[in-house]
Amino acid sequence: MKKLLSEFTKGIVKENPTFVLMLGLCPTLAVSVTVINGIGMGIAATFVLLSANIIISLLKNIIPARVRIPCFIVVIATFVTIVEMAMKAYSPALNRALGIYVPLIVVNCIVLGRAEAFAQKASVGRAILDGLGMGLGFTLALILICAIREFLGAGTLMNYSLIKGFEPARVFGMPSGALLVIGLLVGLFNVLKNRKG
């Protein structure tokens, strides 16, 4: 039981996809401007991750090893396209904010990485836990980065302005600010990890 639980929790801190595995940094850098974006991207990626993990774990005995990568990509691309169509139909504003980065979840290395490194060898149950945990870890990391960037770069959180008279530091709304924030957070993660270990 405890072991099963750890399949879920490992993605949140110990093997956090963003800060520890350093996967999927491209969408993280690009969309982490506002918290809303971060939540939307996180949910979309979690859905794809979970669905792809389930299907790939189910098909693990059918897919031949030598054509596994194209098979994985087809499965992942299908779910990404479903997410994109659903988003366009039900939340066009979010779709516009996330732009090209929704279709690009296909090449988000977290998804293919988990399929390759985990789901193709694991039981469905463990694959579900892994997908959920990794998705949650990615979402939380995104929200953290987004919150810092939105607050410093625009002076707001979830589009509510917090402090009157705070002059936002625009650089945090720009790509260079994303690199700065992620770099510092990865550094902080390493410091905390080294202190424990």
Partner: peptide, 30 residues
């Protein structure tokens, strides 16, 4: 190999066709 990959692609495109027909009108309306 070809059969497996082909089947997966077939299932994938079939499911996308279904989702597309469900969302198409909504997307145009939006």
């Amino acid at each position: 190999y070809a059969a497996v990959l082909g089947t997966i692609c077939l299932v994938a495109s079939a499911s996308l066709a279904v989702v597309n027909s469900l969302t198409r009108d909504k997307i145009i309306a939006q």
